[in-house]
């Protein structure tokens, strides 16, 4: 797959960067907390399946620093996510946006649940009639 070459890339870069570090932290603890919460939802694009906080790649480090810059600049969480999506695509968010085809993903479970409840109540009523 096409990510294999990314993996290759990270193997050699890995030793230069590391997961989220104290030197990156903001002094303002509210902003820092927001940064950490945002990071949990942002995928490191050059890794296999990690968020940017736990990733050791340079890419993740850049995004971590970018998020903090934006937060200090006064942008909201949504604005920062929107910016990242416009630049890197929806692939960067671990939680797909609740829009367009993703609605199906979100509603599939509840749909099955409701369908099942209807089926069970149907059985229930039928057994009552049988009595």
């Amino acid at each position: 797959m096409k990510y294999h070459y990314y993996l290759f890339f990270t193997l050699f870069v890995a030793s230069n960067a590391f997961a989220v570090e104290p030197s990156e932290f903001l002094n303002n603890s509210t902003l820092e907390n927001r940064a950490r919460n945002l990071s949990a939802n942002i995928r490191c694009l050059v890794c296999q399946n990690e968020n940017i906080d736990s990733s050791d790649s340079e890419f993740a480090k850049d995004i971590r620093l970018f998020i903090r810059d934006q937060l200090v600049g006064g942008f909201s969480d949504e604005e920062i996510e929107e910016f990242l999506v416009s630049k890197y695509g929806t692939y960067i968010l671990f939680k797909p946006e609740f829009s367009r085809y993703n609605i199906f993903l979100y509603l599939f479970g509840p749909f099955i649940f409701i369908f099942g409840i209807i089926m069970i109540s149907f059985l229930f009523l039928k057994s009552k009639k049988g009595n």
Binding site: A40, P96, L105
Partner: peptide, 26 residues
């Protein structure tokens, strides 16, 4: 839900030629 979430990136890529991630927060 777990099954659909796991294969969702694949479905979206094939059907809509877009890329999405489905991870822990979802």
């Amino acid at each position: 839900i777990v099954f659909l979430g796991t294969i969702w990136p694949f479905i979206v890529e094939v059907v809509f030629s877009e890329q999405v991630s489905v991870g822990e927060p979802f």
